[in-house]
Amino acid sequence: MTTHAFEITITRKEGLSDPEGTTAKKALHDLGYGGVGDVSFGRIIAIEVEAKNLATARSQVEEMCMRLLANPVIEAFAIEAVT
């Protein structure tokens, strides 16, 4: 068994309103950054999983995202192995 580290990025699904992103975009425009387009906020989760190999650990993390860490109705997620 080896410990595998991952970084999960959870973002709001496209098409859903993101009031925090919209507000930040407006504030950036007010600060003079006129070139700012869409801004969206998300969350990063750092997680360590003990498993026999990277593929097994990754598939477990995927399952965790589907079941608990993300809500597929409103969120998308990306998993990156950290070395």
């Binding site: 009031p19 925090e20 109705v73």
Partner: peptide
């Protein structure tokens, strides 16, 4: 069905 997210005006 559906989900509840943060209010429009936060």
């Amino acid at each position: 069905p559906g989900a509840l997210v943060a209010n429009r005006d936060l």
